[in-house]
Simulated scan of single mutants.
Amino acid sequence: MSETVHLGLAESELERLGGLWTAREIAQQPAMLRETQDLLMRRRAEIEAFLTPLVAQPNLRVILTGAGTSAFAGECLAPVLSRRLGRRVEAIATTDLVCAPHLYFEADTPTLLVSFGRSGNSPESVAAIELADRLVKSPSHLVITCNADGALARYGKGPRGFTVQLPEATHDRSFAMTSSFSCMTYAALAVFSGIASMESRIDGIARATEAVIAQYAAVMKAAADAGYQRVVYLGSAIFKGLAREAGLKLLELTNGDLVTMFDSPLGFRHGPKTIVNDRTLIVVFFSNNAYTRSYDGDLLEELRRDNDAARVIAVTAQDGVGLPERDEVRVPGLAVAEDVDLLFAYIVAPQILAFFESLRRGLTPDNPNTSGTVNRVVQGVRIHELS
Results as ranks from 00 to 15, higher is better:
3 E>C: 03
7 L>T: 00
11 E>A: 03
13 E>Y: 04
17 L>F: 01
22 T>K: 01
22 T>G: 00
26 I>P: 06
35 E>V: 11
38 D>L: 14
39 L>K: 07
41 M>I: 12
42 R>M: 10
42 R>H: 08
43 R>Q: 15
51 L>H: 11
52 T>Q: 15
53 P>K: 06
57 Q>E: 14
63 I>T: 11
63 I>C: 11
68 G>I: 06
70 S>I: 10
73 A>Y: 02
77 L>H: 09
79 P>C: 14
79 P>I: 11
83 R>H: 10
87 R>V: 08
91 A>E: 06
93 A>T: 09
94 T>M: 00
95 T>N: 05
100 A>H: 15
100 A>F: 13
103 L>A: 14
107 A>T: 10
112 L>N: 00
114 V>S: 00
117 G>N: 02
120 G>N: 05
122 S>R: 03
124 E>G: 04
127 A>F: 06
129 I>F: 03
132 A>M: 13
133 D>K: 03
134 R>S: 10
135 L>G: 09
135 L>D: 09
135 L>Q: 06
136 V>T: 06
136 V>S: 07
137 K>A: 15
140 S>R: 08
144 I>Q: 02
151 A>V: 07
155 Y>F: 01
156 G>L: 05
164 V>R: 01
170 T>Y: 03
175 F>I: 05
177 M>T: 09
179 S>N: 14
180 S>A: 14
183 C>H: 05
189 L>R: 05
190 A>W: 08
193 S>R: 09
196 A>P: 03
196 A>N: 10
197 S>H: 13
198 M>P: 01
198 M>E: 13
204 G>Y: 06
210 E>M: 02
220 M>S: 03
224 A>Q: 07
225 D>N: 08
225 D>Y: 02
227 G>T: 11
229 Q>L: 14
236 S>Q: 04
247 G>Q: 04
248 L>A: 05
250 L>S: 07
253 L>I: 00
266 L>R: 12
269 R>W: 10
272 P>I: 08
273 K>L: 10
275 I>V: 15
281 L>H: 01
291 Y>S: 07
293 R>W: 09
293 R>H: 14
293 R>L: 13
295 Y>R: 15
301 E>A: 14
306 D>C: 02
308 D>E: 15
315 V>R: 00
317 A>P: 06
321 V>K: 02
324 P>D: 10
326 R>E: 15
326 R>D: 15
330 R>V: 12
330 R>W: 03
337 A>D: 10
337 A>F: 12
338 E>V: 05
342 L>F: 06
343 L>M: 05
345 A>V: 13
345 A>D: 08
347 I>H: 01
350 P>G: 09
352 I>F: 04
353 L>I: 10
356 F>E: 13
359 L>N: 00
360 R>Q: 15
363 L>S: 01
363 L>C: 00
364 T>I: 05
366 D>I: 11
368 P>S: 03
373 T>A: 12
380 G>F: 04
